[in-house]
């Protein structure tokens, strides 16, 4: 049996927000439960109220709308990994990252919203969403705010969400057809492993085969995902080739070294990230391996 709390199962988002605004004491929101239920059981959390979102079917949708892709916060990792739009092309990095989370059981329950609000430095969806320049829509009774994911995540396990708010949706601008994305994660084993390093890459091809824009987001090397800005800048306007790949890999490794400073994991990670970076960039644009157009 879990420690005492009152369980609520609101039938609508409005009812859920009303409960969060009006219930006295501490509250936790239950989505997939893959993090919350063990935390309750261990006694790490002992809220007075648990508010379940299980009845809010509207938050399980994925939509393309006015140049944005919108993903409801209750969309599971499995759904992301199976959703046709994410199976190929620029958004593949999202499905690839979702498939790296836990095992099938956890992917069937765990949600994108939970991955964001729990804000683990190793959260697998956070680097792809950072590279996609995602925003989060956070609702409270009588209002909502939309803010960039990069500003929403404030530290390990920390976001700027208030206890009476619900993360309802994540969205990001649609990418052109000539964009490609990839995600590579290094864990200690293939399944059920926490990321040691991950990299989400988006490469947008411009005229003449040059890199018009590169977005590279690193996971598990800082309290929150970080962009490898140096590497992004040196890729811009140049044609992918094995030589350019090595320049970019060196710049990414520098970013990791700067971020980790003299942390014990730094020597390992700044070397290991090279392999991760090579793999991710080649997956996003095979010309990094072979040159050519």
């Amino acid at each position: 049996m879990l420690p005492p709390f009152d369980y609520h199962r609101p039938a609508s988002l409005a009812e859920a927000l009303f409960l969060l605004a009006s219930l006295p004491g501490t509250k936790k929101i239950l989505a997939g439960g893959t993090d919350l239920v063990p935390a309750l059981r261990r006694g790490d959390l002992s809220p007075d109220h648990v508010v379940s979102l299980s009845q809010l079917a509207g938050m399980r949708e994925i939509k393309e709308d006015k140049g944005f892709i919108r993903i409801g916060a209750l969309v599971t990792f499995s759904r992301l990994a199976e959703f046709p739009l994410f199976l190929k092309g620029p958004y593949k990095l999202l499905a690839e990252a979702a498939l790296q989370v836990g095992g099938p059981q956890v992917r069937n329950q765990g949600t994108i919203g939970g991955n964001i609000v729990n804000a683990s430095p190793a959260g697998d969806l956070l680097p792809p969403l950072t590279a996609l320049e995602a925003r989060v829509r956070v609702c409270r009774q009588g209002g909502e705010r939309v803010l960039p994911l990069a500003g929403f995540l404030t530290g390990p396990g920390r976001t700027c969400i208030h206890p009476e708010e619900i993360l309802a949706e994540v969205d990001f601008p649609a990418l052109p057809e000539r964009a490609a994305g990839s995600f590579v994660k290094l864990g200690r084993r293939n399944s059920l492993a926490i990321s040691r390093i991950s990299l989400a890459a988006i490469v947008i091809r411009g005229e003449g085969g040059i890199v018009e824009e590169a977005r590279l987001a690193l996971g598990a090397v800082a309290p929150v995902p970080i962009r490898a800005r140096k590497a992004e800048a040196l890729l811009r306007g140049r044609k992918p080739s094995p030589a350019l790949l090595e320049e970019a890999v060196a710049a990414i490794s520098e970013t990791v070294a700067d971020s980790l400073g003299d942390r014990p994991s730094a020597p390992y990670k700044r070397a290991a990230v090279r392999g991760v970076a090579r793999e991710a960039l080649i997956k996003a644009d095979p010309r990094f391996a072979s040159g050519g157009c």
Binding site: G32, T34, P38, R41, S52, G102, G103, V106, N108, Q109
Partner: peptide, 27 residues
Amino acid sequence: CGEGECGACTVLLDGRPVNACLVLAPE
């Protein structure tokens, strides 16, 4: 394990495998 790592408590919910140790009964 009781924390979703081992899969010994796997059951099918609407045909999909889940860890029954991570699901609150009313869910």
